[in-house]
Amino acid sequence: MGEQVATSQQEAALGEETERHSIPGTIIFDGTEAKRGYGLNKMCFSFNEEANRNAFLADEDGYCRRYGLTEAQRDAISRRDVLALLELGGHPYYLAKFAGIFHLDVQDLGAMQTGLSKEEFKARLVEAGK
């Protein structure tokens, strides 16, 4: 009985993972992600205000704690690890505001996430038009 429960929980967890990545390299941002990333996204949303961007820069970890980020999220913020932030519930629209603080544009971010150089990433975009 106990074993069966464990098995179905594992299956459920596996099912969730499969669904999360049913499109390779893409996380479908749904309620599960919204719950997982709420504090992180709320912090990034606050970066719409300059005073908050400055407060973050003055004390990054303290600012993260104020929004209740998990340890893993705080670590990913400190490493500017966009892929990890996405895995931890970050939403691309809000994370873009975090990236904006460091003047990273979408090609910088594209390169970081795909492991390409910025020039290679831009060349891939041009190629898509042919």
Partner: peptide, 13 residues
Amino acid sequence: HQLEGERAGFINK
């Protein structure tokens, strides 16, 4: 277009 993830840069003409 797609901005995020390993699939960033996806375009489907």
